[in-house]
Amino acid sequence: MGDRIFGGLGLALAAFFIWQATQIQLSFISDPVGPRTFPIIIGVLLGLSSLAMILRPDAKPQWPPLGRLAEIGMAVAVLLIYAYALPQVGFVIATALTAAFLSWRLGTHPLQAILAGIATSLGIYVVFHLILGLSLAEGPLGF
């Protein structure tokens, strides 16, 4: 994906944004400008800058090979699962697993990664929860 495609996406986003802005309900009390105008100005700016990117694109960025891209996709999926699992499983277990996964994918030996995950999780738990008193997600086990 180079600047041209990105600009195209930006243009589509701008059009959608402006269309949505015209759909904003008006309330019976209003100031001279109203809630629609400023978003429309922003949408126009978004569109113009996208157009400029299409017309004068920079050199293509270096995208990672497919394997790496899948790697990032996996990490995103794991982080999303982590977000949903936190309140269900509890902070310590969820964090240990997630940190271990990330560390493993960054090239740590699996066994070492598990240890790193547990250490990260417990470390954060001790510092932020026990010492600083921050509330972390509590699972059914209470931690």
């Binding site: 560390s103 995950g117 932020f128 997600a137």
Partner: peptide, 29 residues
């Protein structure tokens, strides 16, 4: 490889600490 997971996890801790909402975590990702 050890540092990055710590940074990511601390980011989650901070945001979760404010709102306690899964929605915010998803938005952050």
């Amino acid at each position: 490889k050890f540092l990055m997971p710590i940074v990511a996890m601390i980011s989650f801790v901070g945001i979760y600490g404010i709102s306690g909402s899964t929605f915010d975590l998803v938005v952050m990702v």
